[in-house]
Nucleic acid binder design. Structure first.
Lengths: 151, 151
DNA sequence: TAAAATTTAATTGTACACAATTAAATTTTA
DNA sequence: TAAAATTTAATTGTGTACAATTAAATTTTA
C-alpha cells in the first residue's frame, strides 16, 4: 500500500465501512424498513406510523411521552406524525384532564380496524427474507442488548 | 388475557416491539448515529456526510452512482447532501467528460484535512460503549449477512 | 405558599430518506 | 444508423429525525 498513490490512500482498516458497526446497522435498518414499505403502503402507513399502532394495539391509550419512551422518539418527531394520523382518524389526541401537560393518544375505530389485516406482515416479511430463525433470534437479542447499552 | 378489556387488547406476540427484528434495528441505528453526533459535530459533519468522506478517503474520486451503491442511497438523498459538502469545499462535483451522465465527486483539501483528526472516532465510540469485542464482531457480521440478503 | 425548577408538547429550522418524475446522455436494437 | 431502451443525476413532494427553543402546567423547594 502506497500512501502517496494518486487514487488510493493508505487506509485505516477501522475507517472502512465493512469493519464498522454503525454502517451495517444504518444500512440494514433502512433496507428492512424499505422491505416493510410495500406491505404497509397497502394500508397507507409509514413504518413509524405502524409502530405507533403496534403500541396502541397493546394499550388503547398512551401519552405522547409514553410513545416516545417506547419508540425512542421525541415530540419533534411524534407531534407532526401523530397529527397526520389524527387527520386520518386513526387516532385521537386530547390533553389529560388530570395533567394538562400530557397529551393522550387514543386508538380510534379506523386504527383498530387495521390490526387484523396487518397482523401477518411480520411473518410475511420474515418468510420473504428466508433468514434462519436461529439467526433471526440471535440478531434480535444482540440488537436489544446493544440498545440497552445505548439507551 | 381478555380480548374485550378496555385498556389491554389480546396481543399477537409477533406484533410486540421486542419480538421484532426491524424495531431494534431501527432504534439501535438511530441511537448509534446519535452517539456519533457529538464526536462529528466538532467537525460540523453529519453521519451520512462522514460516510461519504470515509469512501473518498479510500478513493479520492467516486461517481455519485458509486457512492450510492456503497451507501445504498439514491440521488434524491445524495445530490443535496453533496451540494452542501461542495459549498463547504470539502468535495468537488463535476461531470465526467467521458460520460456526461455521471458526476464525479472529488476529495478537496478541506475534506482530506478531516481525515487524521477524525480517525479515532470509531475507537472512541467503541470504548465509550463498552461493548465486548467478540459481541461487536458477531453483531457486525450478522448485520452484514442480513444486509446481503436485503440487497 | 410563592418562587424556582422540572416536565411535557409544540414549534422552528436543518438534514436526511425515498418514491416518482424529468431530462439529458449513452447504449442497444431493429 | 435512427428509434427505442437504458442509465445517470436532478428535481419534486412527503415524511421522518433531531437539536434547540418556547410556553404552559406541575412539582419541588426555600
Amino acid at each position: 500500500m502506497n500512501a502517496s498513490s494518486a487514487s488510493v490512500s493508505s487506509v485505516n482498516p477501522i475507517q472502512q465501512l465493512e469493519n464498522q458497526l454503525c454502517f451495517p446497522l444504518y444500512a440494514a435498518s433502512r433496507m428492512l424498513t424499505k422491505a416493510y414499505q410495500p406491505l404497509l403502503q397497502e394500508f397507507d402507513l409509514t413504518y413509524p406510523q405502524y409502530l405507533v399502532l403496534l403500541l396502541l394495539w397493546e394499550h388503547q391509550e398512551r401519552t405522547v411521552k409514553e410513545l416516545g419512551e417506547h419508540l425512542l422518539l421525541d415530540s419533534g418527531t411524534l407531534t407532526p406524525l401523530l397529527k397526520r394520523m389524527e387527520q386520518r382518524q386513526l387516532i385521537s389526541r386530547r390533553r389529560d384532564p388530570r395533567d394538562e401537560r400530557s397529551v393522550i393518544i387514543g386508538l380510534l375505530p379506523a386504527g383498530e380496524a387495521l390490526r387484523q389485516p396487518t397482523c401477518r406482515i411480520p411473518e410475511q416479511l420474515f418468510e420473504k427474507m428466508g433468514f434462519p430463525l436461529t439467526e433471526f433470534e440471535a440478531l434480535r437479542d444482540q440488537l436489544n442488548n446493544l440498545l440497552t447499552r445505548l439507551r
